[in-house]
């Protein structure tokens, strides 16, 4: 009995010690093939509205942290639901999205957006991987086509523009 208790306690100490081990000290990674920043503004409208509210990816502590008028603001002088999303917030959102899995993002972009399901972002938003927010953009929806199109380098903003139109009389978003 004492032996079991000893080994059990030792296991707890080892697991605890490993869980609290130090910071990452490996090599940094530069994204070789970045998705387009110049077309991200129409993409980010959808991400901010559907993902970035204050309870979700606008909440502090998220790996994917988004800023914008629909949620958390970047500048200390801005308020939630205040002025429109700023260029600095678009850039911060871009960095959040690209920096989530930079190596895979680079591979997806280099392949012309092929197999974007390699990205956790796509799997989460499609609901094909466990996601507290559920399915945000179902496969084939305008929101889904918007993000996938952005990864291919597309110039066509129609899916993004159509996605950001809830089309419900209940919603009166400016």
């Amino acid at each position: 009995m004492i032996g079991r208790l000893f080994w059990g306690s030792l296991a707890v100490v080892l697991v605890g010690g490993t869980a609290c081990s130090g910071k990452y000290d490996g090599a940094s990674y530069a994204v070789a093939d970045e998705p387009r920043l110049d077309t991200f503004d129409v993409v980010v409208k959808n991400l901010d509205y559907s993902c970035g509210n204050l309870a979700c990816h606008g909440a502090a502590g998220r790996n994917l942290l988004l800023y914008g008028v629909e949620g958390r603001r970047l500048a200390p002088t801005d308020v939630a639901c205040g002025r429109s999303t700023t260029p600095d917030e678009i850039l911060a959102d871009y960095r959040s999205v690209v920096g989530l899995e930079p190596e895979i993002m680079s591979e997806v972009v280099a392949s012309g957006g092929k197999d974007p399901e390699r990205l956790t972002l796509i799997r989460k938003m499609n609901g094909t991987e466990s996601h507290k927010g559920g399915t945000v953009f179902a496969i084939g929806s305008n929101g889904d086509l918007c993000v996938r199109g952005w990864l291919t380098g597309s110039d066509d903003p129609s899916a993004c523009n159509n996605a950001f139109n809830p089309g419900d009389p209940f919603v009166a978003c400016p």
């Binding site: 509205y49 559907s50 509210n53 309870a55 979700c56 308020v79 939630a80 507290k132 400016p174």
Partner: peptide, 20 residues
């Protein structure tokens, strides 16, 4: 203007004062 996607705890986001 935004949708609730996580829960119905309105006052967890609607906190005074108005901030970022």
């Amino acid at each position: 203007r935004t949708e609730m996607r996580l829960n119905g705890d309105c006052n967890s986001c609607h906190v005074q004062p108005e901030t970022g």
